[in-house]
Amino acid sequence: MTKPMVAFRNVDKTFGSYKALDAVSLDVMPGEVLCLIGASGSGKTTLLRSVNQLHPIDEGAIWLDGELLGKRQEGQHLHLLTDREIARQRLATGMVFQRFNLFPHMTALENITEGPVQVQRRRAAEVRDEAMALLERVGLSDKAGNFPSELSGGQQQRVAIARALAMKPKLMLFDEPTSALDPELVGEVLSVMKGLASSGMTMMVVTHELGFAREVADTVVYMDAGRIVEYGPPDQVLSHPREERTKAFISKVIA
């Protein structure tokens, strides 16, 4: 049996007295596209951010490609990793944010080359060629010299996807990548994501776009109150949900 790309085991996370993740266990297989759906506050974004350790988890463990995240086991004890070691682990994941978070003082091209040159210490000329190829792939080769403030939301988000891909991640995390976009710009971002999915990238996508989930996802996970309520192929979860909560949520989103 192939080993999962990401394995969550009994992951807990609380913010103050609020339980964001409640004993979540989940496997994401290599090449799988997994969509996380659920109401706001259901824990789906927290789960996503726990994979690249922007939110450290309280209990349980996450393995990424076989490596335990954030901790090191020595005998019967766990030791927390240092900031530098965690930064190295993050290189395995690429993240795309709801509000793009492009670096405003850098051009589109510089946004993409920043990580490979500054963090991975790769040669600038080689990285530049790759970055241009990535811009081409997201359909923005003519915007290389533009600053984020000169791009539309959809264009900014496509640059952000290229920025994440430039690090050659094993796993891509998408945190509501189309929620901040005007309706007519959603399609261009989703089509880039579709292309990425068909190229075999392992993806975890927090989304409200049920149409995208139905078309592209291998697995859909519905979360509520920090727990996984429903798990299965999109047809099963979206069209024939078993739980009442799932039915109610889906009918609200579609209406």
Binding site: D83, F97, M167
Partner: peptide
């Protein structure tokens, strides 16, 4: 913006970097 910090960490930068 806090998101700038998140984005920098997401491409593997240490806090100081």
């Amino acid at each position: 913006d806090e998101g700038q910090h998140d984005a920098a960490r997401a491409i593997g930068m240490s806090k100081i970097h």
